[in-house]
């Protein structure tokens, strides 16, 4: 079935079954590979994208549930000033090790800062604990979020 999806401001057509997760529609059908596969059950956050600004696990979201809502992936989040600021902070703090989870981390962080422009440590814990980083770059993820939100970073 052909779905018209609004991804990063462009309308793209994907001919897939209704139960196909948005993740695989993006990756295999549309060639948008920034969202990553990590667990397939919404446990790790590597596949996080925004649907109408809300962070969702694209591995567990069927394409048929997206409709005309706006999908934003890591490839498009830099068009948003908050997303761009976070990408810059991620680069400044050299956050990544393997880098595989970081698109999902940045998408979750962007949603956090849009809801809470100056998050506390507890806000960061709550918003970011759905995203696993096996390299455990958590110290730098926290620092980058603090920096992007204009807060002092622990020395």
């Amino acid at each position: 079935m052909a779905y018209k999806l609004n991804v990063n401001g462009k309308v793209l057509t994907a001919d897939v079954d209704p139960d196909t997760p948005l993740l695989w529609t993006l990756r295999d059908t549309l060639g948008i590979t920034g969202p990553k596969f990590g667990c397939g059950v919404g446990q790790c956050g590597a596949c996080t994208v925004h649907i109408d600004g809300q962070p969702v696990r694209s591995c567990s979201t069927p394409v048929s549930a997206v409709g005309e809502k706006k999908v934003t992936t890591i490839e498009g989040v830099g068009a948003d000033p908050v997303g761009r600021k976070l990408q810059a902070a991620w680069a400044e703090f050299d956050v990544a090790q393997c880098g595989y989870c970081q698109p999902g981390q940045i998408m979750s962080a962007t949603a956090l800062l849009k809801a809470k422009p100056r998050p506390t440590d507890a806000d960061i814990d709550a918003a970011m604990s759905g995203n696993i980083c096996r390299c455990a770059t958590y110290n730098r993820i926290r620092a980058a979020i603090k920096r992007a939100s204009g807060q002092p970073v622990e020395a």
């Binding site: 590979t33 990553k36 991620w90 680069a91 990544a96 880098g99």
Partner: peptide
């Protein structure tokens, strides 16, 4: 000198880098 990973820009913008991204 503290030097960011060479692939940083690609990582934070979601460009293909990994085995799973091969087409």
């Amino acid at each position: 000198k503290a030097t960011p990973q060479y692939d940083t820009a690609k990582i934070v913008t979601g460009q293909p880098l990994f085995g799973i991204d091969v087409r």
